[in-house]
Design a protein around this nucleic acid. Structure first.
Length: 762
DNA sequence: GTTTCGCATCTTTTT
DNA sequence: GATGCGAAAC
């Protein structure tokens, strides 16, 4: 009967059929992780579990959708009742149902990153803090991290380590900003992404009997995908949900510590490592056979990841013993890189009959997509860029959505500020400032402050404000009963937005109209079918409020498109969980991949390495790695060196193609024939046959700098090791030790006592 | 009150 | 290279 179990190997089957108790599946890349997860759920249903007793939490809508589809493939439409979705989407759904218990309206707004940043910016201005030291994006990250670790503003203030960090960064008032931020979100009836977790935790903690218990009983089987990317808070909620009352603790977590790439967002491998401590009866399964990639790819990946210190013991292997090697593209410029990649794609398509959909170009930063886009267009290859500016971040879309949000929740401050005078209706910033000031004084939302008699305004402004309020009020009254689509299209018209967009008849203007229109189309589909924009079933709640809460949690890769056969362009992060027959990992240069930002983070380099690991393990058959000598960055041309990660791959896995410049058969492969020199070779000396000497003669104008002049971040020149970057300085005043990464060195970094070393600052 | 222009600033990854 | 912000022109 359960023939699908026959498609599994022994370990996979054991994991799938162990239905009770806590289970951890460590799943290497391409080891059938999704299959195990979906078959396990299918198996549970076949064995008689009700679909609605099953909860499956993922990180992206896409994988949730995929999972549902695959479960449906086995058990049919029963799959629809399984609670599968992202942490944020599922939690938002619960919060919406229980909002009143924590003092929120069911119509609460979800603030996205832009809203959050903009609110923080407002607060910094209100508090007269310097916006340079109090960088809104930095503060957003810190607040987010605090919430992810369950630290309230009060707890934040009491945390010695955090306080010291803030003091060191000259930001003593950060906790105040945090506190004000929380207050303002609450006043606006808004939750940010972290609140969807934080508030749920609070809801459960404060209502153990009437809320938590209900959900504990409801969800008999918990599943977590990408467990390595969960943060402390997510783990805490999972602990709340797993039943303790004598019955089995049915939590099934799947993850791979080697693919943890979201530490910057608060994810912690500790969750995997602590899992066993928290659940002594834990059963662990290791999926080590890679069914995806060929031998050279798997070996290269293993070699790279073995440089990381802290990891779970496992051996990924494959039986695909094809001889095809990894291609390395050395390029002079980023332009050339894009050209070579496009050319190679054409060649591969012909030679191996690769459809576009089996090809992906990956990069570290979204900004790198541009050059590839140009080249692919030149060759008439269809492509799709994921990430970057998503549909819902476009101005016209945000404007329309802001009006919709306001009609559902007039206290939404960010939506309010966005549209109060767009299209222009005679409400200047001076008026809004006055309103904002009064609102702060009285502790009210902007919407409520509008009614205060002491709001001193000109007659003209007062009239305009009154008209605005009346308009929004009328929408609010309809929000409860009217169809979402009817209301939304009326709002589009009555707000004046439609007219404003129509006035612009340029091509971009017309596309803006279309974008606004497609928001309305999406709402129409939602009210008709209950399908949200991600194609997921949102339940029976078809109000505008329900719709708005879903779209904030969407990203680009969730919007479905009609074009199917395209080449995929995305960041390495976005590629996690995907696979392609041919993968291009591009921009493999120092300070780009690994990112220069990673240097400042403890273990930052390890995380970058895991990211590289994720990138190369996306490839099934063809893996091409490229890097460029010069690249346009920060608005100017910069020189770069090949990524240090490349030298972690044994030369035997590479096949060399192309060379620096036009020399096709001459020196092209020279530097690659010698193991260590594979990529640590210095670009600045494009020698032909001779290797660059390891130590250059001292330049005549060498001038050592006094030790106290050298600080973290300094670029220095060392007589023996050459150029390097100072990562950290530590130790007592007269015994300072610098950790320096030398660009041209076999060691990743060296510790040097400044008193003795002679270093010139560059 | 509104628009436009120039300046500055910051560019890692995302639900 | 893109975006936001402030000042000056309209």
């Amino acid at each position: 009967m359960a023939h699908f179990l026959d498609e599994l190997n022994d370990v996979q089957r054991a994991a799938v059929t162990t239905t009770e108790g806590p289970i951890l599946v460590i799943a290497g890349p391409g080891s059938g992780k999704t299959r195990v997860l979906t078959y396990r759920i299918a198996h549970l249903i076949e064995k008689g579990a009700a679909p609605w007793e099953i909860l499956a939490l993922t990180f992206t809508n896409k994988s949730a959708r995929e999972m549902k589809e695959r479960i449906a493939g086995v058990v049919g439409n029963r799959a629809e009742s399984v609670w599968a979705g992202t942490f944020h989407a599922i939690f938002a759904r619960i919060l919406r149902a229980e909002a009143s218990k924590i003092g929120y309206s069911a119509n609460f707004t979800v603030y996205d990153t832009d809203d959050t940043t903009s609110l923080i910016r407002t607060l910094i201005k209100e508090k007269n803090l310097d916006p340079n030291t109090y960088n809104a994006a930095t503060i957003r990250t810190r607040i987010s991290l605090a919430k992810s670790n369950l630290l309230s503003p009060t707890a934040y203030r009491g945390n010695v380590e955090l306080q010291q960090q803030d003091l060191a960064a000259q930001r003593p008032y950060l906790a105040d900003v945090y506190e004000a931020y929380v207050q303002r979100c609450r006043r606006a009836g808004a939750m940010d992404f972290d609140d969807l977790l934080f508030q749920l935790y609070r809801l459960f903690r404060e209502n153990p009997d009437n809320v938590l218990d209900k959900y504990r009983k409801k969800f008999r089987y918990l599943h977590v995908d990408e467990f390595q990317d969960t943060n402390f808070l997510q783990y805490a909620i999972l602990r709340q949900l797993v039943r303790y009352d004598g019955s089995a603790e049915n939590i099934f977590a799947v993850g791979d510590d080697a693919q943890s790439i979201y530490a910057f967002r608060g994810a912690t491998i500790d969750n995997i490592l602590d899992f066993e401590k928290d659940y002594p009866r834990l059963q662990t399964f290791k999926l080590e056979q890679n069914y995806r990639s060929t031998h050279h790819i798997v070996s290269a990946a293993n070699e790279v990841i073995s440089n990381n210190r802290r990891q779970l013991n496992k051996t990924i292997w494959t039986d695909k013993n094809e001889s095809r090697r990894i291609k390395l593209l050395k390029c002079l410029t980023d332009d050339e890189e894009a050209r070579k990649v496009a050319d190679l794609i054409l060649e591969q398509k012909h030679r191996y009959h690769l459809p576009n959909s089996e090809i992906a170009i990956l990069y570290r930063t979204n900004a790198q997509s541009r050059k590839f886009e140009e080249q692919l267009r030149r060759h008439n290859l269809s492509y799709k860029i994921f990430g970057g500016l998503s549909f819902y971040q476009r101005k016209e879309v945000k404007d329309l959505v802001a009006y919709l949000r306001l009609s559902v929740n007039p206290h939404d401050e960010e939506a309010f500020r966005r549209v109060i005078n767009y299209p222009a209706r005679g409400l200047s910033s001076a008026t809004v400032d006055k309103l904002g000031q009064l609102a702060v004084e009285r502790g009210l939302s902007l919407w409520d402050a509008m009614l205060l008699p002491e709001l001193a305004l000109s007659d003209r402004a007062r009239k305009a404000l009154g008209a605005f309020r009346k308009m929004v009020d009328a929408w609010s009254a309809r929000a409860r009963q009217d169809s979402a689509y009817k209301l939304a299209s009326d709002i589009y018209r009555q707000s004046g937005l439609q007219e404003a967009l129509k006035a612009d008849t340029t091509t971009e203007g017309i596309s803006r109209q279309q974008n606004a229109q497609s928001v309305l189309d999406g709402i129409s589909e939602f009210s008709d079918t209950g399908l949200d924009a991600a194609g997921a079933i949102a339940g029976d709640d078809r109000t505008l409020a329900a719709y708005l809460q879903t779209i904030t949690l969407l990203t680009d890769s969730d919007t479905t498109s009609d074009e199917r056969d395209y080449i995929t362009l995305m960041s390495a992060h976005a590629a996690k969980g995907l696979e392609f027959r041919s993968v291009f990992v591009t921009g493999m240069e120092d300070n780009l991949f690994p990112s220069y930002m990673a240097r400042e983070e403890p273990n930052g380099l390890d995380e970058e390495r895991r990211l590289f690991y994720v990138a190369i393990t996306r490839a099934k058959e063809h893996l091409t790695i490229s890097f460029a000598k010069t690249r346009y960055r920060f608005g100017q041309i910069r020189e770069s060196k090949p990524s240090g990660f490349l030298s972690e791959i044994q030369i035997a896995h590479f096949e060399a193609v192309g060379g620096i410049g036009a020399g096709r058969n001459t020196a092209a492969t020279d530097t690659y024939d010698q193991p260590r020199a594979a990529v640590s070779g210095n670009f600045t000396t494009p020698t032909r046959r001779n290797q660059t000497p390891k130590t250059a003669p001292p330049p005549p104008n060498f001038q050592p700098a006094p030790p106290d002049k050298i600080v973290a971040g300094s670029k220095v020149l060392h007589l023996k090791f050459g150029e390097g970057l100072v990562i950290a300085i530590e130790g007592p005043r007269d015994g300072k030790v610098a950790t320096i990464q030398f660009y041209n060195d076999e060691l990743p970094e060296r510790r040097i006592v400044l008193k003795f070393a002679k270093l010139q600052i560059l």
